[in-house]
């Protein structure tokens, strides 16, 4: 198994880890670790045309996904004095079972899709789709606002992996814009988490149900 496949398997395992972790800080650190792996991915996939701008972009992606975003979330948690438990709607074993099923389905589906992938990276599309699916699962099965942001980040990471099938046709400036948008999104969500905790004294999303018809 090549280095690229190893990285992709690691990405999927880290997603499952986020789902399995019972402490919020652990979940955030796992997403951070996934961000670092994702930052390395473009450099590994294109090692022959490894230029300065590719390295700069990889460093930027690692800094943002692996350090800045997790730091923002950890800070929001600290300032809002969030309790550390994850608080699932559905128990851990049930969601893990679901995640296993979704991952299997994602890899089966990836085989069917007519998507050309770079050499040595047959797992790319499967890893992307399963990370995306697990992100969605985190969003719907976990109560806290912070975990919903983590689910959103997993979803974005899945799409980022998917985007690696076409490096080159999406210009760097656009990729930079996407990265900045996600970063700003986490920043704004972090502020919102702080206010939610102050307003409701805890951060469970089920409390946010006053508005309806």
């Amino acid at each position: 198994m090549g280095l690229i496949s190893l990285c992709l398997v690691l990405v999927v395992l880290l997603s499952v880890g986020v789902l399995a972790a019972s402490r919020l800080q652990t979940s955030i650190r796992l997403v951070a670790a996934q961000g670092v792996v994702l930052g390395l991915l473009p450099a590994l996939l294109h090692d022959r045309e490894l230029g300065v701008h590719l390295l700069v972009f990889a460093a930027g992606a690692i800094a943002v996904k692996g350090w800045l975003m997790p730091w923002l979330l950890l800070r929001a948690m600290r300032e809002a004095e969030v309790r550390r438990e994850v608080e699932p709607f559905i128990g851990f074993s049930a969601t893990l079972l679901l995640a296993g099923g979704l991952t299997g389905a994602a890899f089966l589906m990836a085989d069917e899709l007519p998507i050309p992938v770079p050499a040595d990276s047959q797992l790319l599309v499967g890893a992307a789709l399963s990370t995306l699916a697990i992100g969605a699962l985190v969003m719907v099965t976990r109560k806290k606002a912070v975990t919903q942001v983590l689910g959103y980040l997993l979803l974005e990471n899945g799409i980022y992996v998917f985007g690696q099938t076409l490096t080159g046709s999406v210009p760097e400036l656009v990729e930079l814009g996407i990265l900045l948008d996600v970063l700003a999104g986490v920043f704004v969500m972090g502020i919102a988490i702080f206010h939610i905790n102050r307003e409701f004294d805890h951060m469970s999303v089920p409390e946010l149900t006053a508005l309806r018809d």
Partner: peptide
């Protein structure tokens, strides 16, 4: 509280 709920839903649903 209501404005916060609206902003959170808006932010998260539209981002996803």
């Amino acid at each position: 509280a209501h404005a916060l709920e609206a902003a959170w839903k808006y932010l998260l649903l539209c981002s996803v």
